[in-house]
Amino acid sequence: MTGDTHYDLEILAELAEGLLDDATARRVREHLAVCDPCGESLADLAAVREMLAAVPVPAMPLGVAMRIDRALADEPNPFASVPVGANGLSKLSLVPALDASAEVDSEELATVTPIRRGRRVWVATLGMAAAAAGVFGASVLASSLMSAPGGTLAEPPATSVSTPERSPQRTLAYTVRASGHNYTSRELSGPLVGYFGPEPGTGSNNDEQLDACVQDKANELDRPPIAVDRAQYNGSEATVMAFWEDQSLDKVRVVVVDDNCRELRQDGLATWN
């Protein structure tokens, strides 16, 4: 086949996949050697593969991940030999018990779930998640997170009243999660409320090195962090800390450090809500 006749794209694509029989493949190759338009078409086909490969692979949004975690936590393990107790308590044992000191109205929290179907507000799981994490300062954090999904302008968390301010030896109250999420610079410019909610299963901080690092940064900035996430930043292991810059303006200072507490980028400002 030469001259004005050309092979269609499907034949050329099959040639590229090695799907043609030997005789046909040879004929098409002979044609390609002398036909520029068909060569162009073959290049177009190769470009399709490259373009598909170049589309970025997105990470699962944290809201979706948390929704799935919730759904799984609500589902009794079908293979567990211990039957769910009549009072349903064995199901609750999957998540840490509520910290007794946290003044969280658990009934109020319970109304936040289940999540609505349709265009759902993923952030709605945060209230429950905060309670489940049983972190110090949960009452403060939980109430602020809970008011966010309702669309009401969330009162940003008030500075903790129980923590003595400006004392270098103070024990910091903050929530730590280990999302493993790979943050981009764009995400870290906010809003952050959807990312920094604790998820069930990650407890409070028990890593001394991390604690020392957070303490350092808190001392430097002379304020306690709102939340800390052990995650990644542009593909590297990172700890992301959020501090209030100006609560009334919804401004958050974001500090990103590596495992040795070295800053991976300059502090950035972000929005919380």
Binding site: D8, L9, E10, L12, A13, E14, A16, E17, G18, L19, S41, A43, D44, L45, A47, V48, R49, M51, L52
Partner: peptide, 20 residues
């Protein structure tokens, strides 16, 4: 799988060629 890929790429090529 190969033939589905081949047919799919053949359909996409004219739509996407202007992006090259």
């Amino acid at each position: 799988v190969k033939s589905r890929c081949a047919r799919g790429r053949a359909k996409l090529a004219p739509i996407l060629s202007h992006l090259r």
